[in-house]
C-alpha cells in the first residue's frame, strides 16, 4: 500500500489492536452488546480482529425488557451470524418489582441498566468488558481512558485513572477489580455511519425512516411499539414517517420525523441537522450539566 491509510482504516486498525490486547491479557472478557449502531460496529470489528476464529468471548446484553421489538430480533440473528454465545441478563429485582419507564422515571435506568450491569458482571465473573462509548458523545466522555479502571464495587474515580501512553494498555488488576474497554473511543458519529455504509453492516431497521405509530408527548415523538405503551387520555397513535438516531428503551427514546431511508440519506440528514446525538435521550439532563459524570461514578457504562 503506497498511499497513507485513510482515517477509517487507522481507526479500524486501532480498534482491532485494542480488542486483541484484551483477549491476550484478560482472564474473562465479554463484549457488552446493546444492539445499536455502535454495538453493530463493535461486533463487526471483533469479527475482523479474530478472523478466521470467531471472537473468543461472549456477547452480553443487559436487557431492560423495554427495548424495541426490532432490536430483540436483530440481537439473536447477529450473535448467531458471528458464531458467538449470547448472554441476556435481566435484573431479577427490577423484574419482580415491575420497574418500568412509565411509573419509575430515572429509577428505571438505574435498576435495569446500572444495577443490572453490575450484577451481570459479578454473576459471570467477567474481569474485562468491551463497551461502545465514544469520546465525541459527551463532554465527560472526552476524558475517558480506552482502558477504564473500575474498583471492586464497579466505581469509576476520574482522579484515579491510569495514564495511557502510545498504544500501551495496562490491563493488570487485583482480584474483583475490573476494566471497561472502549475500542471505538476515537470514532465520531460520522465515522460510525460511514463505516456501516462502506462495510455493509446490518443495523436495526428503526434507524431507517418508515411509517410507524407514534404519539407526541412532552415535546418528544414516541413510538407505540407494543401493547404495553400506556396512552394518556386523549392520546391517539398517529402514523408518521419517522426514524431513530439512537436506540434505547422504546418509551424513553425520541424519534425524528424523517424521510431518510438509505444510509447516504441518513448521513446527509445527520450532517445537515443541528442537534447533537444524545439530545434524544433523557439521561444527560439530570443533575445539571454533570449528568453523565455522576452516572459514571455510580457504575453506569
Amino acid at each position: 500500500m503506497t498511499r497513507p491509510p485513510t482515517h477509517l482504516e487507522r481507526l479500524e486498525a486501532e480498534s482491532i489492536h485494542i480488542m486483541r490486547e484484551v483477549v491476550a491479557e484478560a482472564q474473562n472478557p465479554v463484549m457488552l452488546y446493546s444492539v445499536g449502531k455502535d454495538s453493530a460496529v463493535m461486533l463487526h470489528l471483533a469479527k475482523k480482529a479474530f478472523f478466521p476464529s470467531p471472537p473468543p468471548f461472549p456477547l452480553l446484553h443487559v436487557d431492560t425488557t423495554w427495548k424495541f421489538r426490532d432490536m430483540y430480533a436483530l440481537r439473536e440473528k447477529a450473535a448467531k451470524d458471528a458464531g458467538m454465545e449470547l448472554l441476556v441478563y435481566q435484573n431479577p429485582e427490577a423484574q419482580e418489582r415491575g420497574i418500568n419507564p412509565f411509573d419509575h422515571g430515572p429509577l428505571h435506568t438505574d435498576m435495569w441498566k446500572t444495577e443490572g450491569l453490575k450484577q451481570a458482571l459479578d454473576k459471570y465473573g467477567f474481569d474485562t468488558a468491551f463497551g461502545g462509548a465514544r469520546r465525541d458523545e459527551e463532554k465527560s466522555r472526552a476524558k475517558e481512558r480506552i482502558f477504564s479502571f473500575r474498583t471492586a464495587s464497579h466505581g469509576w474515580d476520574p482522579k484515579n485513572q491510569r495514564p495511557e501512553l502510545w498504544n500501551l494498555y495496562n490491563a493488570r488488576k487485583a482480584a474483583k477489580e475490573s476494566i471497561r474497554v472502549f475500542p471505538i473511543s476515537n470514532w465520531t458519529q460520522l465515522d460510525i455511519w460511514q463505516y456501516i455504509h462502506l462495510e455493509g453492516i446490518e443495523i436495526v431497521p428503526l434507524y431507517f425512516s418508515a411509517r410507524r405509530p407514534t404519539v407526541e408527548r412532552d415535546g418528544m415523538l414516541l413510538m407505540v411499539d407494543d401493547e404495553r405503551f400506556r396512552l394518556e387520555s386523549g392520546e391517539v397513535p398517529v402514523e408518521r414517517s419517522i426514524r431513530f438516531r439512537t436506540l434505547g428503551c422504546y418509551p424513553l427514546t425520541g424519534a425524528v420525523e424523517s424521510e431518510a431511508a438509505t444510509l447516504p440519506e441518513i448521513i446527509q440528514e445527520m450532517l445537515l441537522t443541528t442537534t447533537s446525538e444524545r439530545q434524544g435521550r433523557t439521561i444527560d439532563k439530570d443533575e445539571g450539566g454533570a449528568g453523565m459524570e455522576v452516572k459514571k461514578q455510580q457504575g453506569y457504562f
Binding site: P5, Q194, L198, E265, Q268, L271
Partner: peptide, 13 residues
C-alpha cells in the same frame, strides 16, 4: 451526498 461520502472516505487522519 454520494460525492461527499466518496471524498470523506479518502481523508487521512
Amino acid at each position: 451526498i454520494d460525492a461527499y461520502l466518496e471524498a470523506h472516505q479518502h481523508k487521512t487522519m
